[in-house]
Design a protein around this nucleic acid. Structure first.
Lengths: 240, 240
DNA sequence: TCGATAATCTGGTCTATACCAGATTGAGGT
DNA sequence: ACCTCAATCTGGTATAGACCAGATTATCGA
């Protein structure tokens, strides 16, 4: 009952999968080099790479720039509708969070940002760019564009923790409603570089546009996640 | 100011992008064959394929099994929290919807389904498997698992339209709350075959677990979308 | 002991070629 | 005008080899 046309790279995929299970490789452990694998499985490097890419697409393994292939950790559960800080929900799930602020600046509203948030082109806006880690693997980068109207001096604060918490506790600002957009995309340019992945790597884009109690634009959040890093989980229509 | 290490396949990507713009190729139009492109751009087929894969990952083009490369249509906007049928919101956006029921059957609750929905293993459950098209491109396949308790005879109805509408109008069943899960995955097996894509093609998984007015399990919906087919758009916390 | 440097290892890119299977096209026969 | 079947075109898979640049490791000198 064997399928004749089952291609070699898929057979290799299966063998690699079994091998990983047998060796009980766990999160963040490294696989042998491509050259070693291609010898061990009697094929060429090109074909072994096809099999590895397959497992990468399936989220079992990931590559780290010119260092090797590693076992992908469990997906992080994430609810973009809840106003809970990154650090908190990562910790809740038993992982170790870390946030790096790559830059923060006061800048001017660009045309596309104006389109999205309603502020006039050229108006002042805070722009924060951060990278977030879980167990020391960089999972996403995030652009925050914040309306400085009611939170001047924000950039003087530490932004390595929750911006949401900062806005609430220090400036009494909280999102009243939000527009959320989610879609798969290819990481490239700044986002790919910041996450040390090759251009074209699969990613997930999450955008949150928040308005405060007054109905004014509060914040635009643009998150670029690795495709294998998260599982979005939302509960809707529950009163509890 | 040229970057020395900008790889050929990314240069080709840029050239192809420009070429597509210049030719004003539009939705669903076909590109020249890989062999022709590799001659035209003075490179090998392997490298041109890398460039094409890049554009595929970015969602500009898609491949149709051994037929060629085509321009990807605009993404469909989709709100999984709204109880609006597929046909309606596709039409609203100016596209042409179509649904194909690939099979429907009364079957038994499997262990993983029991885990998800709370019904006992072996209990009866309706299982419907459908494929959905937009402008004659198959964008997703969908498994519906429905609790037959309050809608016996459902399988006798036509399931090429909205199941949600059927449940509401004929059986007075409506989802009261839902648990939604979303994450990127690789399409494979039945789902990849049904969408005529290669195993490992990037996809988006959307699961909706619905409970009715009584708090009883109503329906489990598992959708497998092409990665470039949709843009999820949700509004949260708005009273309008 | 430490820091700089050289050797080595890794995945990333690229060429050239070959054959296969599914999809499409075209020629011929009715 | 239609069907059939062969030729052809397409992307999919696979081999064998090569060189590059970044990352890591080993070595050597201060």
């Amino acid at each position: 009952m064997s399928r004749f046309d089952y291609p070699v790279y898929l057979q290799l995929r299966d063998q690699l999968w079994s091998w990983i299970e047998a060796e009980k490789l766990s999160s963040q452990q490294r696989l042998p080099s491509e050259r070693e694998l291609s010898e061990r499985f009697h094929t060429t490097r090109v074909t072994i790479r096809q099999a590895l890419s397959q497992l990468e697409a399936e989220g079992l393994i990931f590559r780290s720039n010119r260092r090797g292939w590693y076992i992908t950790p469990e997906r992080l559960r994430y609810d973009p509708s809840r106003d809970v800080g990154f650090n908190r929900y990562v910790t809740e799930q038993g992982f170790k969070p870390r946030t790096e602020t790559l830059f923060k600046q006061l800048t001017e509203v660009s045309p596309w940002l104006s389109e999205a948030c309603g502020l006039e082109v050229g108006a002042p806006v805070y722009h924060i760019f951060r990278r977030r880690y879980v167990d020391e693997r960089g999972l996403l980068v995030e652009h925050n564009y914040i309306n400085p109207a009611h939170c001047s001096g924000l950039l003087g604060e530490s932004t390595d923790l929750s911006i949401w918490q900062l806005l609430r506790d220090k400036y009494d600002l909280r999102p009243e409603h939000r527009d959320i957009e989610i879609y798969p995309l290819a990481l490239k340019g700044l986002e790919a570089d910041s996450l040390s992945v090759n251009p074209g790597a699969a990613g997930l884009y999450i955008q949150r546009l928040s308005f405060d109690q007054r109905g004014e634009f509060l914040e635009l959040d643009r998150e670029y996640w690795l495709h294998d890093a998260l599982k979005i989980s939302v509960r809707i229509g529950d009163r509890h």
